[in-house]
Design a protein around this nucleic acid. Structure first.
Length: 137
RNA sequence: UGAGAGGCCCGGGCGGCCGCCGCGUUCCCCCGGGAGCGCGGAGGAAAGUCCGGACUCCGCGGGCCAGGGUGGUUGCUAACGGCAACCGGCCGCGAGGCCAGGGAAAGUGCCACAGAGAACAGACCGCCUACCCCGCCGGCUCGCCGGUGGGCGGCAAGGGUGAAACGGUGCGGUAAGAGCGCACCGCGGCUCCGGUGACGGCGCCGGCAGGGCAAACCCCACCCGGAGAAAGACCGAAUAGGGAGGGCAGGCGACGGCCCGCGCCAUGGCCCUCCGGGUAGGUCGUUGGAGGCCGGGGGCGACCCCGGUCCCAGAGAAAUGGCCGCCCCUCCCUCCGGGGAGGCCAGAAUCCGGCUUACAGGGCCUCUCACGCC
RNA sequence: GGCGGCAUGGCCAAGUGGCUAAGGCGUCGGAUUGCAAAUCCGAGAUCACCGGUUCGAGUCCGGUUGCCGCCU
């Protein structure tokens, strides 16, 4: 079958990223940190986050992003349906081979998805700015 | 052949399969989109953001001051702190290279340590005894001569200090010395000549004034309003809130009471319509330009003019990727069949002109020096 | 993408162009003590890096690197 990957399958909006971070589960491997949140009925989408701390130079950052995208494209049939997935490099200064990326992606995605939905204590909503923070209830 | 100098250019190539982004076009469509075809899709620095402009908004009557920048001259340019040619200084046998290269005789400030002295000079070690004074010795024509020591003085040559010591070398001169005099060099001034000019040259004069630092304050000449595309312009939900109008309900008034109707009332309530601000989001700005290529012409050159031809990435958390084969280059191993590893620095975000910085390897042109040969 | 600022021992930091680069905390060595604390004495610096100006640069001027902040 053909393996297409279009812009409509990308996470683009800040809201989508925030929703996935807030509701999604995480799984870390040798190369990848996967954040995944379910979106039942919708096609699975990809988000990328490769910061300056990973590689200082833009060439290497772009290289990582392209590898991540290619791994997502080629392994798309083996991924869970109906989810938003954000890929983050697990460590700074990595140069992963494509095949290992594909294997790790297929392995980590279901694990991250399984851990999603749990309320994370650190992800609480901040109080409205008008109220005094320590006021008694 | 070897060693160098200057300038320009490239920075892997071809093919196959799977993909990505933009535009155009045809078709399908459940109006969200989708399919096919065609075209285009990273750089020499896209980088740093160091200068200069275009563009947009804000500010603005003019001038001066403050502040910042530039700094040989003449040009080039939209402009520049860029570039070209030329001038001057330093370096190099040379081709050439480097220079923030105006003013220190407008003023202020600084010059540590060392040294006698560091800026209207000064005398430590020294040099001198011609003049004046004193002591001693000798001579004689008896108040002078010679020697020696000292004082008062003269001097700045030599030593020494320093980054730097109030021109340098030589000769004359002198008690010793000193631009004191002379020659050459340096420096300053004047006339003339050449040059648009920076400046250069011939001649004459002056006997020497001028320490250094202006990337110290400063003076002079010239330039500069501020912010930056996340600039800015437009459209604009949902929810909450604001304003205007109307309706209903409400209160008050007149008639003896009630209902209807009428008039008045103020704020609050409900509903409807309209208006404005504005968030999410969207559209524009946004790529046709001081543009690229080819040809011709002008100029030493930077560059300019004319003609032809081409349209050449554009956007969003952001496309230009993955795999394979062949070729090219480099390195390693080799049983010479081959095998293995590697191929720079680096990724557009409004655009353009420069500068600076990073960079494996390679190509082209011009020139210099040394040696050899013809 | 744009606009600003900073860099001096392990940490916090002063520093008119003139030295052997203040000071505090900490560390180490020594003295003191039966052992410690306190106290006293001492040690420890490529001034982020590379050039330039100057007789002389932590300081002045260019460039490079790293870190921090603001606009959204």
């Amino acid at each position: 079958m053909r393996l297409r990957f279009r812009r409509s399958m990308r996470l683009v909006r800040r809201r989508d990223f925030q929703r996935t971070y807030a509701e999604g589960g995480r799984a870390r491997g040798r190369w990848l940190l996967v954040v995944a949140a379910p979106r039942p009925g919708e096609p699975t989408r990809l988000g990328l986050s490769v910061g300056r701390a990973i590689w200082r130079r833009a060439v290497q950052r772009n290289r990582l992003r392209r590898l991540f995208r290619e791994a997502f494209r080629l392994s798309y049939p083996d991924l869970p349906r109906g989810a938003d997935v954000i890929l983050i490099p697990a460590r700074p200064r990595i140069e992963p081979p494509l095949e290992e990326l594909r294997d790790e992606l297929v392995e980590l995605c279901p694990r991250a998805l399984a851990k999603s939905g749990r309320r994370r204590g650190s992800r609480r909503r901040s109080p409205p700015p008008g109220e005094a923070p320590g006021a008694p209830a």
